[in-house]
Amino acid sequence: MDKPYNNKAWFFVIPVFVLVALSAVIPIMTVINYSFQDTFGNNQFFWAGTEWFQDVLRSDRFWDALARNLLFSFIILSIEIPLGIAIALTMPKKGIWVPVCLVLMALPLLIPWNVVGTIWQIFGRADIGLLGHTIEQLGFEYNYASNVLHAWLTIILMDVWHWTSLVVLLCYAGLVSIPEAYYQAAKIDGASKWSVFRYIQLPKIRGVLIIAFLLRFMDSFMIYTEPFVLTGGGPGNSTTFMSIDLVKQAIGQFDLGPAAAMSLVYQLIVLTVCYVFFTVMSNVGVDKPDARVED
């Protein structure tokens, strides 16, 4: 059978090509381009090979920032995921309080990130901030601008406040989609509350939990705005995360080559970690993937 062959169909795909080229391909190629070259201005470039990558991987500054990132992501994930599940479990399933709870939960998510930083910057100040002042009044010394521990505590608290809601909302969506019959069957089987959580609720929200976990990991690993506004990376370099360092290098010092190499390494780390997490978490509790039937 003769099929009509018409190249005009390509016109439909052009908008996507243009968008992807502008938003992803061209910027990434530019960065890759920079990462292998050196420039002294005047738009003159010299081939540098893998020199920048070697520099990045050999610099303490990079490894320190990476360690801070990993520590930060680890801490906020181990707080936000359990806390988010716990809050979602206590939220009402039906009734007039449902929309109230949902709106309250969504509020922190609606605030622009730099505003969140500013809010906490003022909130934590000992002279005019409610939080800072209260802590001082209680007899503790508190200064996030000069004490490393205080700076970290404030940033972690800020992130938990800002993002736990996301985990809550995702888990809540997973929980309300569990059919009532499961709870009834569990009741009839004489299951305890813990068993209901362990064998019904947790397996049923696994999918959304993976998404929550990945989103929170990526976001926290790429954190920039809030600590930048709150502490500017200080005191010292104690809250200088990779993204902050990257911006310092690329825009502050205008070292395009090293910054480009660093951002590629950075991206590779995010991709690798997400891939590993996703693979591991999708396979937990599943045997014989060939015999799996999605329900």
Partner: peptide, 10 residues
Amino acid sequence: FQFPVIYDTM
């Protein structure tokens, strides 16, 4: 019940 209720992970 109308829809089979099983404990997925067991």
